[in-house]
Amino acid sequence: MSDTAVETPNVMVMNQLPSSEIVGESPLHHADLASAAATKNEGGVHLRENALQGFLTLRLNPENKDLLASANAVLGLELPTKPLSSVTEGATTARWMSPDEWLISVPGEAAFDLETAFQEKVDGHFSLVNSSGGVTTLVVSGEHVVEMLKKSVPYDFHISEFPAGKVVSTLFAKSSAVIRRLDEQAFELIIRRSFADYIWLWIQDASREYGLVIKND
């Protein structure tokens, strides 16, 4: 194991990924989206799983400016402090979840480096927790994507209320999702692993009248 973590006595971090010979299985691995993608290419709702990304939950008080600055420096972006906003720099996106919480996505293999860097370089009361295995990302898009979402989510998807870049944690059918608008007709849904199959079934059903197209990564 390439465990080179600097372990402070206070907080334990570990590289949770095996060597690349062992392939991780995303929460929708069993659905075999790759085969589904081969079958149909026309429809009003498109779906793609953005599997095996790295996700970390960051908690800190942004009113502590020194702490915020050192976190920003490690992340290489300015953590958004405006409610329901997001910031993307390169491959890193930080989503405002709560006044003292962000959901950060990085390439899967970069999560441990980020955790290590935080332990080394950020001093103060924070917590950074790896939750990569607990979620997956669906990108839904297409001409009828808003209709499909309106069947699933109580939030207002009108572009005036939900512009690109906005992040909304809310209910998705009887589960939940962190939803970010990517552009007028594309959304990112971050969903919990254990609910992934339910949401996958739901989206298929809710998209039926528009036609669902599965896209490959």
Binding site: P154, Y155, T170
Partner: peptide
């Protein structure tokens, strides 16, 4: 905290 209205079910 979110500074907007949300549905009761949330």
């Amino acid at each position: 905290h979110c500074c907007e209205y949300r549905e009761e079910e949330e």
